[in-house]
Structures are given as structure tokens and as C-alpha cells.
Amino acid sequence: MKTEVRKICMLGDFAVGKTSLVNRFVNSAFSERYLSTVGVKIDTKLVQLVDRQVKLVLWDLAGSDPLNGAAKSYLMGTHGIVLVADGTRRETLDSALRIHQHAESLIGARPTVLLINKADLEPQWQSTQADLQSARQWARNVWETSAMTGAHVEDAFMALAGVER
């Protein structure tokens, strides 16, 4: 069977859980520890779709504004973007939107999923329903995920893998 290879970039503010989400998706593991990503971390995952195999090459970029300076060129040849926000920090949703626009201005529109992470901490969420509604306006594919419990993590990545090129 033919295997497609796709480059996916993890984008989002500092400490929103990008690395944790990749770790959950690739290794089915989670750690409480926070080790900020330096530069870029790369993982791969083979995904079985109904009709084909897709190998995802996941580029996990350092947080804050990963598109400043050097990291810009990391976006080249990207097929899809996983945009991550932290549900417990309202401002990370705004920065997700900002980063998304920046990325689009650099490489054009790409299939994107928005992950509002740390769903297991829902009681502490700052993002309101209204925020989520407005997020759905610009990102058609929005998931409330938890790297800790694994909720919807698989679904979100599979959604991106399944998008036709």
C-alpha cells in the first residue's frame, strides 16, 4: 500500500501542551513535567486511514511566538497545522489566532485544526462558550483535548491526516 508522508507543524503559545499532545499521540504517554522545547523536536507517526496509510512527520516548535526569527523556515512544505491553545489561559487563544494568521501570511492557507487543550482542568477554564464559538469561525476544526487523559487527541490528529491534499 502506498504511504503518503505529511509534514505537520505544532503551533501555539508557550506551555499550552504541544509537546505533551505529540507525546500522547505518538507514545500514548503523558508527563506532568514541563520541559520547554528548544528549537524543534521531531516525531513521526504512521496513521492507518480507510483507504491508505499516512505517515505524519510532526514538527513540534518552541512556544511563545514560534514564528519569530529562525523558526519561520520550519514552516516550509507544511501540509497541515495543529494549533494549540490552553483552555485555562484565555490569552493563549488570542495568540493562537495571531500565530495562525502569521503562518498563513508566510505559507498560505493550510489545513488546520485548533486544539483547546487541558480539558481535564475544565473547572479552571477561562475560555467561555462565546470564545469557542468565535474560534470556530476561523478554524473549522476545533477540538477540546487533554494530553493528560488523551481525550480527543487521536481524533484531532486523524482529522488532519484525513484531509485530502
Partner: peptide
Amino acid sequence: QNGSGLLLARAHQSEPQDNDSDAVAAM
């Protein structure tokens, strides 16, 4: 491939141990 770091082709002298060439290429 430049930029994307996608592995387009590879060849090995001896059968490689199961190292992930795609990750190596991207890295």
C-alpha cells in the same frame, strides 16, 4: 526535500536497524 524536510528516497548499504529515516531527514 528542502524546507519541509520530507524524505523522498533513501538507500542503505546494509539493512538498516529500525531507525526512523523520516525523523532523521526532518531533523
